[in-house]
Amino acid sequence: MNHYLNITRLSNLIKREVLTNAKAMLIILGAISGVVLFIFTISALNKNTHGTHVPLFASTFMVTGLVLSSLAYRDLLNKNKSYAYLTLPVSNLERLISMLFITTLIYIITYIVYYFLLSTILNAFASYFTQQDFEAFDVADTIVWKTIKIYLVVQSVFLLGAASFKKFPLPLTLLTLFVASIIMVLIAVGIMAAFTYDMRLNDIDFNLPSYLDRRYGLDFERISKIVFWYLLAPFCWFVTYLKLKEKEV
């Protein structure tokens, strides 16, 4: 196991990633603070004292996290940086786990704390200037945790993009997702058309999920949920590991 996972090496790697990228992370947080400040100010000027923070947190959390995940392996985007990164005495599994750790656990905790502090300061300023009470950011809100759950799955796709694309990982990942969605829709429409051919001829109403359930005992919705919540992320992490393993300069 020492060849693949060693806690000391892993913690050294996480320390290296955090310390060498701290400046970039602070710049991203600074930019996000600007966006949050802008949207919150507009909302406060419109006297929206409630329901601002949770959607604002959810959207900025998701966007920032996916940008961060896309840039996780940015050392591999630059030839000179990739020499140092790939010859660093750590395993590929540690390269994967370190980035997973940073883009999930560290990021989630940091962002929640950061947003909580930012929202508290913004509320205090807004209350001072408008003489109204603004609703505090509720960390326990179900939308907050649902967003985090979705992020944990979606970030795996962006992490895979970060390890796969040699240039522009964020736009290329988005483009790939777009193309993959179109292909999936076309396949679904094709299947649907094939199944419904006879039925359409006979003018019978057709519903693919209920047809699959009736005919083959396949619960389409359940399968989709299992694939999304339990299979997609581990699959992407595994492929990310393979991509790191086969990475050359």
Binding site: N2, H3, T87, P89, S91, N92, E94
Partner: peptide
Amino acid sequence: RLPDFLREI
């Protein structure tokens, strides 16, 4: 690229 190899180069 095992860690034991990389620490020796």
